[in-house]
Amino acid sequence: MIIDPSEKRKEVKKKLRKLEGLPTLPPIVQRLNQMIEDERTSLNQIAELIEKDQVITTKVLRLANSAFYGFPRKVSTVHQAMMLLGINVLKILIMTSSIFEIIHKEDVGLWEHSIGVAACSKIISEKIEFKDAQEIATAGLLHDLGRVIIKVSFKEEYQKITELISQKVDPLSAEKEILGIDHAKIGAFLMRQWNLPERLIEAVASHHNLENTKKYRQEASILHLSDVLVHARGYGKTLYDGVPPLDARALKYLNLGLPEIKEILFTLEPRLYELRFFTEELKKEIAGDNG
């Protein structure tokens, strides 16, 4: 049977729109959104709301303290995290920690890849003196959100995609063939549903297709380059066994040459070394939960 990709795409989007069978966000996210929109809300009130939830607080502080942000001192309160990271980043950390909790149980490799890309995105942003490096790091964390969704919520299709990949079809084409849409678009679609900033949505949507960018070409280029570099270094695991193609335009848009790439990789290495301890700690906890 031949699948009509555009029909399939409609079906997938419908499911996404209704959030059918998708990982649910903790109720606190909804509440946070309302508070952020309400101008009368103070940062203190927001911090208080988060701190009431011990589980979320622990997760957020742990992510904030992990090496991908590279803060020299320990972040010990939600308030401090908010001052250092900004409210948008904090919101995304809360979402991500919930989404990735599902995935790192099933797919530690993708989780490792994602935090590696987050760390690398932060380093590149700082290198080119880009504004809001933290926010870009967070986009790095979310760049493969669509893959998580496919794996968790489109299980049958995921099977077919991995079959195609084992027959040497490249992962993006395999996703498009089976779902009519690739993981970058799925991730962005969901991020829009969750009211995340347009800058991050476009970066995630276009991290494999730089020509699709409208306003945020550099953001998308940072994610694209980080994705390639983390694969090249062999940190984490995704559907790509080898190194995915590098779009040379990313280097042009970011005004980076090989000497800068070298600096980036040498800065990244110790971060990845530290992140490994972080991931191991999570793995142990999961093993503990199951045992």
């Binding site: 062999g234 080898g242 190194v243 990789l265 040498f266």
Partner: peptide
């Protein structure tokens, strides 16, 4: 060994240079 495997079949000039950087690292 793993580096070689990851870069198997890659001919892109930029990527090959990145590979050399990683080797050095």
């Amino acid at each position: 060994q793993e580096l070689e495997k990851r870069f198997e079949g890659i001919r892109d000039e930029n990527l090959l240079q990145i590979k050399e950087i990683i080797k050095e690292l």
